[in-house]
Structures are given as structure tokens and as C-alpha cells.
Design a protein around this nucleic acid. Sequence first.
DNA 1: GTCTATAACCGGATAGAC
DNA 2: GTCTATCCGGTTATAGAC
Lengths: 221, 221
Amino acid sequence: MNKPVSTKKTAGLGQKRNRDVNTKRILTAAEQCFAQLGFKGATMQAIADLSGIPKANLHYYFSSKEVLYRKVIEDVCEHWLAAAHFFDETDDPAEALAGYIGAKMDQARNRPNGSKVWAMEMLSGAPVIDGYLQGALKPWLDQRTRKIEHWISQGKMDAIDPRTLFYMIWATTQHYADFSQQIYVLNDNKALSDGQFEQAKQQVSQIILVGVGLGGETFDD
Amino acid sequence: MNKPVSTKKTAGLGQKRNRDVNTKRILTAAEQCFAQLGFKGATMQAIADLSGIPKANLHYYFSSKEVLYRKVIEDVCEHWLAAAHFFDETDDPAEALAGYIGAKMDQARNRPNGSKVWAMEMLSGAPVIDGYLQGALKPWLDQRTRKIEHWISQGKMDAIDPRTLFYMIWATTQHYADFSQQIYVLNDNKALSDGQFEQAKQQVSQIILVGVGLGGETFDD
DNA sequence: GTCTATAACCGGATAGAC
DNA sequence: GTCTATCCGGTTATAGAC
């Protein structure tokens, strides 16, 4: 749909930059295609059309469809971790959880396709992402689980199972990206407005915080 | 993988029954294949192998891959509604929500592939399921939204947004089916045991009920 | 580095014997 | 009703001109 940044050889200085730009365009288009259609369903032709880069050039930048897919997944993983650190910015459980939930909600809103690719991968049994789950996500979760257990032992929050809590946070926040079509229909065939989304964000935070015994001053209105 | 119920013509009485059995086997295999691989990724050959029925016979029972897929989706929709009525079995908000959450959790555990096909459809933008969302799910949600608002006006529960609550319930319960691979890895590469699952069920109920101001006696242990 | 044309392959669907 | 063999369209990937 879009025009490629430069056709034919512009040989010389701006070339590496050109390569980066094209690579980025391809990755963005691929993320969208894979998100909606799955690995098999997305075609190189569709990715080419969407990115505005000829199909054969995709194979110039990425040796195969699978290599392209793995690169998309890698980016999504990095993106996941980007929100993860919000949990550690404070030692107050209410602040940590509210900050983390807010960050995950914003991610779902701002980069829904990343969330969808992740979901697709999980549905497929995580063939590509598996190593990342073991090597990065599991250690992250184990550590935060201990942090929550510590807060519980200090009487700062209710004695809930930390894993259930995290699964709930992940599921709920990612739902706003992954099931956006369902939300769209249930919202009278209208996308959530910024106001509606902000309200949802506040509500999700409120219900979860209150649910784990942190029902303090977490609302805005 | 499995052997077909009967090869060659057994002509006569048991035939219609035979047809039903084969149809059922195909649908079960198809549900699994579509859940893991998406519409395009699942091949008629794979469905044939898994059901133990020759590929050509699939086309005898279902005229095309799309017809087969639509039938799978229909079954999944019926299944969705099957849990929906648990919400209406009582006028007590805590009982209604706990019963509904429990039913949805059990569904996720007992028929994960149904949940995955649903999720896949949503990620793809719900091309097939759209009419059902408009015609059945939206009315259902609108009605239950009013019920919750009624309870809120009676002071029986906190003034939360009913939609956010339902999205949270759907997302969290379905997470146990859709993201089972992630849960598997995070649970030390072991599937959740029955005990772990029951605990998760209780925890989800507890956090949500407490979260909306229904923190009474909802636990077992 | 880029693009057009094509090779090689695979999957859905059908024809036609039994 | 069931199964084997086959056709045809579509997809990935590459060869080779520019």
C-alpha cells in the first residue's frame, strides 16, 4: 500500500539508513499480518503489499518467512519486558500493581498487534517463543512472586496466590488488544474512545487492587 | 490416528448412526487443529489423520473446509451460551458471579480447544462469528449489565462498571485455556494438577468478588 | 541493491472405481 | 457410502536481468 522509501540503487551514503527503514516497514506490516492471520495464514505477498515493498525484496531482507516471523516474535518479547519493569518502581504494593496494570493497559492500546502475535503463538503451543518463556518470563515471574509473598507476610495485602494475580492482570489487560473486535461489537460497533479506555484502565486497577486487599485511594474521580 | 468406525459399506440399519459418529470425530479433530493452527494453518489432511478418516471422506461429510470451520464455530458458540445461564440461577450477586466464574473456569479446563478456536476467531477480527456477537452475545451482555447496575443501585455491591467486570471474567477464565502453554511453562513444565486448578478457581472467584465489594464467605478452605 | 519472471511445492477439491 | 488418484490454484523461494 505504501511506497518503498527508495527504488533502484541510490548507492552511496544513505543506503544503510534506507535498509533500516525498509526493514522496519516490513516488520511492522508482518506484525499486523501475523497477528490477524497466524503464521500460515499470513502470506509474503500480503506483507509485501502492506509494507509497499516488492515481495522478492522481502526475501532479500529476510531469508525466509520463518526468519521474518522469528524476528517479529523477538520484538514482541522485548516489548513485553518493557512494561515488566514498571512493577519494580516502588516498594508499595498498591503503587507497583497500579503502575504495572497501567503500563500493560497502555501497551495493549498502543501496540495491539504485538499482543495478538503473542496470543497467536500461545494458542499454537508457543513453538518459537518457548525458550523465552523458560529463560526470561519464568525467572521474572518467580522473582515477583516472592516480592508479593513478602508483602503478604508483612500484612500489606491479602493472602492471595501471586500467580493467579499475575495471570489475571495479563489476561485482562491483553484482552483489550486480543479481543478488540469483540469489545468493538459490544460497544455498539464503535472503537473504545480515549475516555472509555481511561475509564476501563481505572476500573481494572480498582477491581484488582480492592480484590487483593489494597482498596485505598486508587481512583481519580 | 484413530480407526474409522466402519470401513466400506455396512449398508442397512446402523448407517445413520455411523454417519453421526464420523461427523462427531471429524468435528472434534477439526476443533483441535483449528485451535492450534488457525484456519489456514490447519490442513484437511491433518484433520483426516487425527480423526482417522480419509481426507476425501471429509469432503463427503463437509462440502468444504470453510463449511467445516463454520460448523466448529457454531458448536463453540453454543458452548459459550451453556455457561452463560449459570449467571442467572440466583438473585444474589455473590452467588451469581461465583457460579458463573466457576462454570467458565470448568469450561476452560474441560474444552480448551473450543476456547482457543474462539480466541483465534477474535484475533482474526471475527469474520465468521460476527453475527453471533451482534445477535446473541451483545443482548446477553446488555441484560446482565442492567442486572448488575440494579444490584449496585440497591447497594449490594460496589459501583463498578459491569462491562469491565465481564471482560475481566472472560479474559481471566479463558486465559487458563488459551494460554495453557504459558501456564505449563511457568508451572515448571507441568500441567496444572486438579488441585492446582481448583485453587486457581477459588482464587479467581475470591479476588473478583472482593474486588467488587462482595468479600463475604466465598472460599472453601 | 532492486525487480520480474518462474521454478518447485503443497493443499483443497473432485472424478470415478468399487 | 467409501477410497485412490489426480487436477488446479496458490504460495514460498530463487534465478537472473538491470
